[in-house]
Design a binder for these strands. Structure first.
Lengths: 199, 199
DNA sequence: TAACAAGTTGACCGCCCGGTCCGCTTATTG
DNA sequence: CAATAAGCGGACCGGGCGGTCAACTTGTTA
C-alpha cells in the first residue's frame, strides 16, 4: 500500500471535473465518447486527462468503481431491512436509478480492468446473493431464480428504455416492475433452462 | 421501381458470402467490426464490399432487412394460430432465437437507414400489436401492457445473456420465460409508470 | 517571496477506420 | 472465340482516435 501525498488543490478539482464530465459524456454518447471531448467538457487540456488516468480504460474503471461503491452502500443498508422482498426491489431500483444504462451495463464488461474493480464488484455480487436468498426464503421471490439471475436482469430495465426516443427519465420503473412481477412466486411457470453459474 | 438486370454468377455468390460473413462478424464483435475484417472473412477484397453496399450502414441495413423479413414471416403465420397466448410466446421465441443479441438490438437503432427498413419494420410492429391485442383479450397477457412494451422487451433476453461468459446458446430461454411470466395477468402488480407511445 | 516540484497544455505521433479509384480479371454473349 | 462490360482488389486518402512529450504555468512550502 503506497501512502500517496495529497493532490495539489487545482489537481484535485480537475480530477473531480473530469470524472463528472466523463460520466456525462459516456452516458450521452456511450463508451466510445472521445477523450478529447471529455477534456473539452471538463474545461481542461487533453494531456491533463492522461495525467490523472493513465489510459481511457482507467478512467472508465474509476467511474465504475464509484458506481459500484454507491451500490454497495445501498446494499449494506438494505441488508438490515425488515421486509426482504421490498429490500430487493429497492436495491434494484437504486441500481436502475443510477441514471443512464451505459453506466450500469459496462460494469459487467471485461472485468480485467483493475483488481480494485473486480474486488468491489465481487462484494456487490455477494450482497445481491444474500438479498435474493432472504427474499426467496420470505416467499417474495420464486424459488427457481438465483442471485446470478437477478444480477443479469439488473440492467435490463435501462437497456430496454434506451431504445425509446426521448424516453421519460423514469420509464425504466415500468419495466423493472414487469420484470419483478416475473420474479414473484405467484403464477410462476417452470423455467425451461437451468441457471448460469458464472455471472 | 428500377428493373435491375441479374447479377453475374460470381457477384451473386460474393454478395451471399458477404452477408453471411458480416452477420457472423457483427455477432461476434458488435457493430464496430471493421469492413476490412468482414471482407477478409468472406474471402474477398475490401473494394468488393463497397461495390455491393455503398456504405457500411447499407450493409447493416441489408442484414437487418433479412432478419425482419424472417420475423414478419413467422408473425404472419402466428396470426392464424388458435392459442393467442402461445402464439405471442412463440413469436418472442423466434425473435430471440435469431441467435446473437447484436442482430436484434440494432434493428431498433437509428431507423433512418433506409426507407425499406423502416417500412418493413413498421409492418412488424403492427403484427406485434395484433398478437399482443389477441393475447390480452384472451387473458394470456395482463391488461396494462401494450404492444410497444413487448417490442421493447423483445430483445431483453438476449441482452441479458450477453454478459454471461461462455453462455449456453439457449440460456436466453430462461429469461424470456421469466419476463413472460411478468407479462401474465396472474399475480400482476400495478405498474408505476405509463407506457411509452413512440417505440 | 524565492525556488521547486507538481500540474497543465496542445502540438504531435502512429494507428486504424470507412470510403475511393483505377488497372486488372473474368463471366457473358453473339 | 473475341469483344465487352461487369466485377474485383488493394494501394491510397482524409480524418479521428488514444496516447506522448517537452515547454510552460502555478500551487506549495520554507
Amino acid at each position: 500500500m503506497t501512502t500517496t501525498r495529497p493532490l495539489r488543490a487545482d489537481a484535485a478539482r480537475n480530477r473531480r471535473l473530469l470524472l463528472a464530465a466523463a460520466a456525462d459524456e459516456f452516458a450521452e454518447r456511450g463508451l466510445d465518447a472521445s477523450v478529447a471531448d471529455i477534456a473539452r467538457r471538463a474545461g481542461v487540456g487533453k494531456g491533463t486527462v492522461f495525467r490523472h488516468f493513465a489510459t481511457k480504460d482507467d478512467l472508465i474503471a474509476a467511474i465504475v468503481l464509484d458506481r459500484i461503491d454507491e451500490l454497495n452502500a445501498a446494499g449494506e443498508r438494505l441488508l438490515e431491512a425488515t421486509d426482504p422482498g421490498a429490500a430487493l426491489l429497492e436495491f434494484l431500483t437504486v441500481a436502475a436509478h443510477q441514471r443512464q444504462q451505459r453506466d450500469l451495463s459496462f460494469l459487467h464488461e471485461a472485468g480485467g480492468v483493475s483488481a480494485e474493480v473486480t474486488r468491489v464488484r465481487e462484494t456487490m455480487y455477494q450482497t445481491v446473493y444474500t438479498l435474493v436468498d432472504r427474499a426467496r426464503r420470505h416467499g417474495a421471490v420464486r424459488s427457481d431464480v438465483t442471485g446470478t439471475d437477478i444480477i443479469l436482469l439488473m440492467c435490463a430495465p435501462n437497456y430496454v428504455t434506451s431504445y425509446v426516443s426521448d424516453a421519460p427519465p423514469d420509464l425504466w420503473q415500468r419495466y423493472l416492475a414487469i420484470i419483478f412481477d416475473g420474479l414473484r412466486p405467484e403464477g410462476a411457470h417452470p423455467l425451461p433452462h437451468p441457471p448460469p453459474t458464472t455471472p
